[in-house]
Design a protein around this nucleic acid. Structure first.
Lengths: 144, 144
DNA sequence: ATGCCTGCAAACGATTTGCAGCACA
DNA sequence: TGTGCTGCAAATCGTTTGCAGGCAT
């Protein structure tokens, strides 16, 4: 079963209708390799109206098919959520996003809960940096 | 030296002019106890134009006088940055924000850098939960 | 056939910018 | 006295909504 089919089944299971517009948006979303903006989806699904793209993105977010990615400049992007809870490591140079499977904050949450008497419901953690290939253009040039 | 003076000195030191509008915005900002939106500053500095409030907020952000706080609903707020690097614990119920002085992510950053070959430049970490007083209205009632 | 979903356009809120005048340094 | 700062208004950006019709179920 393709990823597309799997998402479609998810929609069906929740009594959402399967329409050409939705399929187009979902296909465009699944075709993305890294993070992407709503605008990029609109570019790749030109036949679909703006409003519908936004509505579908919200639907996909609610269904945990995609997750939001906050970029350092404050703009909101999305990315396919192929796992459960995880964090992102975003390259500020090339925009590549790497998933961090382990949630190393779990311990922290426990300590924090004890120390602050807060009941911690969630957290948002993203790292920004420069990936190996962007770190040293010289190193890349040297390889060639 | 009051906090207001101290911020003003900071502006002067960087060759920014001290104007009534800026002072009004800065005073309003410093008067905030928790996090706040630009709108709240505009309400408290009615004489100052929208654009100027936004321009001043950007200035204060660049000067590290305030820092941005991302709320869970995606809206952007600010809060006075009375320390250096730290994180926030936001109560989703009453909106209270608590600073977390220790940056417990520092170790994580180091491990991550080694594991991924990224050069980590920064990170964004915020926790969401319910504070002690919001956790249990019953417990509060019982106290009375 | 029913009503969810659609596209369009207009509304929307938050933020930015162009501009001519003003006032701080 | 020069130019950085101002307020105003209009522009802009990203997103949402109202509506009349269309299509999946």
């Amino acid at each position: 079963m393709s990823e597309l089919e799997s998402v479609i089944r998810k929609l069906e299971a929740l009594d959402h209708r399967i329409t050409p517009s939705r399929v187009a948006v979902i296909a465009a979303v699944l075709a993305q390799s890294g993070h992407f903006s709503v605008e990029e989806i609109m570019r790749q699904a030109r036949a679909v109206g703006r409003a519908t793209v936004f509505r579908t993105m919200r639907l996909l977010t609610d269904l945990d098919v995609v997750c939001r990615v906050l970029l350092e400049d404050g703009s909101l992007h999305y990315r396919v959520s192929r796992r459960g809870h995880h964090h992102h490591l975003v390259c500020v140079s090339c925009g590549n996003v790497q998933d961090l499977d382990e949630c190393a904050v779990a311990d922290l949450v426990r300590e924090l809960a004890a120390a602050t008497e807060y009941e911690i419901e969630g957290h948002w953690l993203e790292f920004y940096g420069r990936c190996a290939s962007c770190r040293s253009p010289l190193a890349q040039a040297a390889k060639a």
